[in-house]
């Protein structure tokens, strides 16, 4: 990974071996972030819907049992209980699978949490197709579209363990509702404990100006791998980690469009309404350039292994490379 020139949020170069990266679970970052918070502030409480271990909130529950609330299998109830806790001055974090947090309790999130603008923090675990064998029902792939369409909500999709841990801590300081998405399986660590995380500020994680690859979540790693391969062919891709989908860092995105002239977006999410949609909205309003989307193309997931699924659904590094080739052809044809 190269340096950090010209970014609003400079990223100290982290030694990442793209060929053999350290692997770590983002959900563990969420769990450790909650423990960091529990130590720092007394008003943080955690709710869970019978998924204590799989969302890693067990780490908080063991340390702060008096501030831990088991709600049982009742996500709609949990969303509104969190709102009630927030109304008494608590900072509630709730944890369940993203498929349920974003869809099953969407009305509760919209009316009770977001319309009231309460500081409820929604932890969506098992995001994306990388959940693996559980299949379509448990693979949350509509979260970005749903959450970013609701007023007052913020949406964060961290790229690795460290970023998830830091984002979790940062979200507690935001006096509004927000949603953080993290995954099940271990994913490559591409940031370090000292990498700056600022809510709403995208990080340039690799410099380049032939095209920009804008990614979030685990796709940041895939984007870096793709950029490395493109570099071998003499194409320098900028890689932008848009960990905050809303509010979007429109300045950084417009700069990427202006300075690179072509964009590939990469996300582990449906193609409609996700990162690609958000970037396209911003780009057409600032500096229109060709964009190609690496995403799940309007279909449900299925059972399989993490890597197999990502390849089968067209969201691995080679897919990013192919999208880069397409977008560069369009750039040249202009």
């Amino acid at each position: 990974m190269s340096g950090t020139t010209k970014t609003a949020a400079p990223v100290p170069p982290a030694p990442v071996n793209l060929a053999k990266p350290e692997m770590k679970r983002t959900r563990e970052g969420f769990g450790h972030g909650l423990v960091d918070l529990g130590e720092r502030r007394k008003d943080v409480v955690v709710l869970v819907g019978d998924l204590t271990g799989s969302t890693n909130v067990n780490l908080f529950a063991e340390r702060f049992p008096d501030r831990f609330v088991e709600v049982g299998i009742a996500e709609q109830n949990m969303m509104c209980i969190a709102a009630g806790l927030a109304a008494t001055g608590k900072i509630p974090f709730l944890a369940t699978y993203g498929a349920f947090a974003s869809c099953r309790s969407a009305d509760q999130m919209r009316v009770t949490v977001a319309y009231t603008d309460l500081p409820v923090k929604i932890g969506g675990a098992h995001g994306g197709i990388s959940v693996g064998p559980d299949g379509a029902t448990h693979q949350a792939m509509e979260e970005i579209a749903i959450v970013r369409s609701i007023p007052n909500m913020k949406m964060v999709v961290p790229c690795d363990y460290w970023e998830t841990r830091k984002a979790t801590v940062a979200l507690a300081d935001d006096p509004h509702p927000n949603y953080i998405r993290f995954g099940r399986e271990p994913v490559p660590v591409v940031t370090g404990p000292d990498t700056l995380f600022t809510l709403g500020k995208a990080n340039v994680v690799r410099e380049g100006s032939d095209l920009a690859i804008i990614a979030c979540g685990v796709m940041v790693y895939e984007a870096l791998v793709a950029a490395e391969e493109l570099s071998d062919r003499g194409i320098q891709a900028r890689v932008l980690n848009v960990h905050t989908l809303k509010p979007l860092d429109r300045d950084q995105v417009a700069r990427a469009a202006r300075e690179c002239g072509a964009i590939v977006t990469a996300e582990e999410h449906q193609i409609h309404g996700g990162l690609g949609g958000a970037i396209a909205e911003a780009v057409v309003q600032s500096y229109p350039v060709p964009i190609e989307f690496v995403a799940v193309h309007d279909r449900f997931g299925r059972s399989g292994k993490q890597d197999e699924l990502m390849a089968a659904f067209g969201i691995k590094a080679p897919d990013v490379v192919r999208a880069a080739e397409r977008v560069l052809a369009r750039k040249r044809a202009r």
């Binding site: 509104c80 209980i81 969190a82 009630g84 806790l85 109304a87 009770t112």
Partner: peptide, 8 residues
């Protein structure tokens, strides 16, 4: 549910 959160 909101009232439950308030009470808790």
């Amino acid at each position: 549910s909101v009232a439950c959160g308030m009470a808790l």
